[in-house]
Each structure stands twice: as structure tokens, then as C-alpha cells.
Amino acid sequence: MSENETAAPKSIVTAAILVIGDEILSGRTKDKNIGYIAEYLTNIGIELREVRVVPDVTDEIVAALNALRARYTYVFTTGGIGPTHDDITADAVAAAFGVSIDHDPRAVAMLRERFSEADLNEARLRMARIPAGAELIANSISKAPGFNIGNVYVMAGVPSIMQAMMDVVAPTLKTGVKVLSDTVRAGLKEGDIGGALAEIAKAHPGVSIGSYPFWSETGPDTNIVVRSRDAQMLQAAMDEVKAMVERERQPKA
């Protein structure tokens, strides 16, 4: 790049997560994927905007997927791509995109790396059913692949497998401007600083300010988190937050 050239500014890249599974909604399985994906995306410059959880019902998966993929840059789904009868995610994704689905020779070959012909039964072959036109997402742990079609990335619900798939997917994604953040521990109750924080937030429209109460060893306390894509705007708002905290900590006359 020459001295007179400037890099094109990065845009904001957005994403949603669609968690699929009756076991999540019933509480039998505690989701461990949302937080991991959220942090992963934040770290590479993709802003997670929405999370939905739907049951193993084709119509509900299709409706949610079509809504999310039209609204965000990327959609990441977890769950429902295993070998049992209620693993219907691949079929639902095919229905959402209006394409056929069948055993993909590439996926079958991957499964053969792990299973013998005797063990590669009809149930396990379900994991090789891939919508037409999709690209496979390699699975270094159990070999059964995920897949990508359009702006949708379909991954396993098992956390270790999903994480391995994210490592495969991430280098292929378009990323945007990262959100910067800074935190100050106020040493004050959230209700004591709510009004002052609202005024600071009003004065800094390009900055997000959140307060998060918790119970510390000394009693009620609050973390104040300031976020922005602009480092100077972040610093200006944080300076005001810190000054406000110092004022509020002073003994009242």
C-alpha cells in the first residue's frame, strides 16, 4: 500500500445464534455454546445481535432460520445433526433454502475414517445427509461434519465438537470493526449511580455504557462497562465515568 492509499474502513458484521433442541428448552441439557460463540465472535470483530432457542420441530426451525439469515450477516446453529430420529436440523435447513438433501459422498468418506463398514449403519449415515450445494465443516473429533450453506453455519451441539468446528469456520468469515471495552469497579450501589450514568450516556451517543451489580466481600458493588468501536470516544466516556465514581464516593455533607 502506498503512502497515499488508505485501507477501506471495515463495516459492522453481525451474527445470530440459533440453538436447536428440546433438551435445551426442557433444562435437561445446559447450554455451554452461546457464551463461547459470543466471546469468539467478539474477539474476531463480529457482533452477536440475537440468540434464539427452538425445539426439534421442522416448521419452527425453518421459520427462525429464515428470519435470522435475512437479518444478519451470519447465522450459527448448534444441535440436531446427530444420528437419531430427532436430529432434524439438516432437513430443516434444506427446507429453509428450498434445496434437496441426500447422503453426501464427501461426508460418507469422512465417517468411514472413524467407522468400519459394519458400524456405519443407517443411523450413523444420517450424519452424512447434507443439503445440496452446502460446503462441509470438518470435524476433527468425531469426523461427522457440519456444513455451511449461504450465510448459515450448521454445527454440532456437543461443546468440544462445536469449538473445533468454530476454529475451522473462523478464518473464512468476514470480520468488522472490533468493539473496544473498558471496565471500572465503582464501589457503589447501582441505584446510587443510575442517574449520573444516564447523563453520561446521553452525552456520548457513540458509546454503550452498562452497569452490572454484584455482591462483593464488602457488600453491594457495581461494575461499569463502557464499549465503543472508537478508542477516543471510549476514553472520553470512561474519563467521565471515573470522575463521576470519584465524586459519588466522597462522603456526603
Rank of each mutant, 00 (worst) to 15 (best):
F147M: 04
P105H: 04
K10P: 00
K174L: 13
N121I: 06
T58A: 08
F76H: 02
M244V: 13
M162C: 12
A243M: 11
V19F: 00
A109H: 05
N121K: 12
A123S: 15
L173E: 09
A123I: 10
A203E: 09
L48V: 13
N4L: 11
V154A: 07
V177K: 10
L25V: 09
T172G: 14
T218R: 15
S160Q: 12
E248Y: 14
V75E: 00
V51Y: 07
G194A: 12
A186V: 14
T6A: 10
P220T: 03
S100Y: 00
A94L: 02
G79R: 01
K174H: 12
N139S: 15
G133N: 09
D22C: 01
R124W: 07
R129K: 15
E39N: 09
A134N: 09
V19K: 01
N151P: 14
D239N: 15
G157P: 05
Y153E: 05
V99H: 00
K178I: 11
A198S: 15
L173T: 13
A107W: 02
A92K: 00
G98W: 04
R69Q: 13
E23T: 08
K178C: 10
H103D: 01
E199S: 14
E50I: 12
N4G: 00
E113F: 04
E23C: 06
N43S: 15
R49W: 10
L41D: 01
N139D: 13
A132G: 03
A170Y: 10
A186R: 04
G45Q: 06
M1C: 09
D86T: 06
T42M: 11
R249A: 09
A231G: 12
T77A: 08
F115R: 06
E122M: 11
A96T: 02
K32C: 04
E199I: 15
T6L: 13
K10R: 13
V154Y: 03
A94P: 00
P9E: 04
T73L: 08
P105F: 06
S11W: 03
K30G: 04
V179D: 03
A123V: 12
F97P: 00
P9W: 02
E113Y: 00
D91P: 00
Y74W: 08
A156L: 13
T14A: 08
G194P: 04
A231E: 15
M127E: 04
L25N: 02
S2T: 09
G80E: 03
Y72R: 09
M1P: 10
A198I: 07
I24D: 01
L120C: 06
I37E: 04
S142G: 15
R112Y: 00
N43K: 13
R28F: 06
I20A: 02
I149Q: 00
A118G: 07
I61G: 03
G157W: 01
V152N: 02
A7Y: 05
A95R: 06
T89H: 04
R249D: 09
G176N: 11
L65A: 06
R114I: 07
A138R: 13
V184E: 01
D192P: 11
A243V: 12
R28Q: 08
R247K: 14
K143P: 11
D86L: 05
P205D: 03
E39C: 03
V207E: 02
A107T: 08
V207Y: 01
S142K: 15
K30L: 09
I200H: 00
